[in-house]
């Protein structure tokens, strides 16, 4: 029974960890499908996390924080789009510049505005955070291990953004494969020349894709600072943007496989926190460092083993110019 509860709790944690990864990975899916490498996921998320926490702290409203988070990430996305699409700059360099800029700017502004050593104030007031929604009869159901505990822990008890992220997967699949916009988006990442000769603006499409990426990164960042934790701290994304990109590649730029990849990465993360200090049979207590490295080791192994089979959008990373 004890083990069963542990497993369910680990799975619940997996869902919470997977949420920002999934949001960022789907964000990356849109811009990468349009042919723009999205290494800027990290920076956009971090910028949104700061803006959301700062505004939520100032106004007392998590929703205002969400708006600010999205606005910040969209602004960064616009900057990236201008540099890479309009000016045809190198996509990797531009994105890394944004990541580095945001990593410094967040704590600096936090220090100037709140004077708390580069953090935002603790969000402990009512309505300052996105808190868990408890579904009807959840506490009663939790007393019955099966299926009550599953209902209480896996379905109920998450905040709004988690549910939104779950809904995003079928929604993005529908947009990508069932709509005109999706068809054009997939085409522009494969052969922008074909899109141009068909009389569609390559620039316009890529801007739209990058803006969608900005909005989703905004939500992901907001989740980190106002839902998963209570405030912004330095480097709080901790590489989640890159991990999301890895999940996207592992998921072959498709919504459902990407969801699976995010859940897998999140599961190793959740498992790692459970395993800390626990003595396992045969091996004994595993050092904390080794456990913390687990998701990353797994990522490297998975990517090394599987990425060869994944084919990226053909035109990814190449700024579009009419002359060949």
């Amino acid at each position: 029974m004890e083990t069963y509860t542990l497993i369910v709790l680990t799975l619940a944690a997996t869902i919470r960890v997977a949420t920002p990864l999934l949001l960022a990975a789907i964000a990356g899916m849109f811009s990468e499908r349009s042919g723009v490498v999205d290494l800027g996921l990290e920076g956009k998320m971090l910028g949104a996390a700061f803006a959301a926490a700062a505004v939520s702290a100032a106004t007392g409203s998590a929703w205002a924080g969400l708006g600010a988070g999205i606005a910040a990430a969209v602004l960064l996305a616009l900057l990236l789009a201008f540099a890479t699409v309009s000016q045809r700059g190198n996509q990797v360099v531009a994105a890394m510049a944004i990541n580095i800029m945001v990593a410094g700017l967040g704590p600096t502004l936090a220090l100037a505005w709140f004077n708390l050593g580069g953090q935002t104030p603790q969000l402990d007031g009512p309505g300052q955070r996105f808190t868990s929604l408890v579904w009807p009869w959840a506490s009663t159901a939790a007393e019955h291990p099966f299926p009550g505990l599953l209902y209480a822990q896996l379905l109920s008890g998450h905040n709004l953004i988690v549910y939104a992220a779950a809904a995003l997967v079928p929604a993005s699949a529908w947009v990508l494969f069932r709509t005109r916009f999706g068809l054009r988006l997939r085409a522009v990442g494969e052969n922008p020349h074909a899109v141009d000769t068909a009389g569609i603006s390559v620039t316009g499409l890529r801007y739209q894709a990058i803006l969608i990426s900005g909005v989703l990164c905004g939500v992901a960042g907001t989740y980190l600072s106002t839902a998963a934790s209570a405030g912004f701290t330095r480097d709080m994304t901790a590489g989640k943007g890159y991990l999301a990109l890895a999940a996207l590649i592992f998921g072959k730029w498709k919504p459902y496989p990407t969801l699976f990849a995010c859940l897998l990465f999140a599961f190793t993360d959740a498992l790692a926190s459970r395993l800390q200090g626990v003595a396992l049979p045969l091996v004994g207590v595993i050092p904390v460092q080794a456990i913390l490295a687990l998701p990353y080791v797994l990522t490297v192994l998975l990517l090394a083993g599987f990425v060869g089979k994944a084919t990226a959008p053909a035109a990814i990373g190449v700024p579009y110019a009419k002359e060949k």
Binding site: T179, R180, V195
Partner: peptide, 10 residues
């Protein structure tokens, strides 16, 4: 149909 999809849905 790319470019002349004739509607937002495919």
């Amino acid at each position: 149909v790319l470019g002349v999809e004739g509607g937002a849905l495919l």
